[in-house]
Amino acid sequence: MTVPLIARIGALVLATTAFYGYVGQMVPQKEVQPPAEVVLKSDLTTADMVKVGREIMEGKGLCLTCHTIGKSGALRFPDLAGVDGRAKSRVAGLSDVEYFAQSMYEPWAFIVPGFNPGMPPINKPPVGLTDQEILCVIAYLQTLGGTPTVTLQTKHHYNSGTTAAPPSQGVSPGGTQPEAPLKGEKR
């Protein structure tokens, strides 16, 4: 042989890996940073909260990974367009703020008919929003079909310290076990 076999094979291995490495350079390059910790000022106005809530929903909260705003057709999760109008009357006895809070702190407590349970509790990891951040999200949700009323001082069932069980109606598979929503998602 004219060229040593080892060199030939080496060249082949090198060329193949280099080719795949090159293919890797051709696709869009995007670096995903972990969500930045946002410190919320305590004097946020409701209008500011809407803005912050929107950012949280797009970013750290990962809400828009599953939920849509203004989409119809075959959906995996409920669409949020005009959600405030529905939230006011969805569960008897819950105001829209309470309903939103419940669906974030205890998402399995009420499942919109026609959908499967699948949402993790938002105040716990992996999303893990703080109470203030959830208030901001509620403020934004209220703008979808209504007007925002919450402030950072707003108290609802989950941040007021009361321990009474929320009026839980509709489907309630799994009670209070934390892994219940995870289980419920299996289909």
Binding site: A18, G24, V32, Q33, P34
Partner: peptide
């Protein structure tokens, strides 16, 4: 952080 695909493919290579 999650590196870019380009970086990942280089490491894999």
């Amino acid at each position: 952080f999650t590196p870019t695909l380009g970086f990942a493919t280089k490491v894999v290579s």
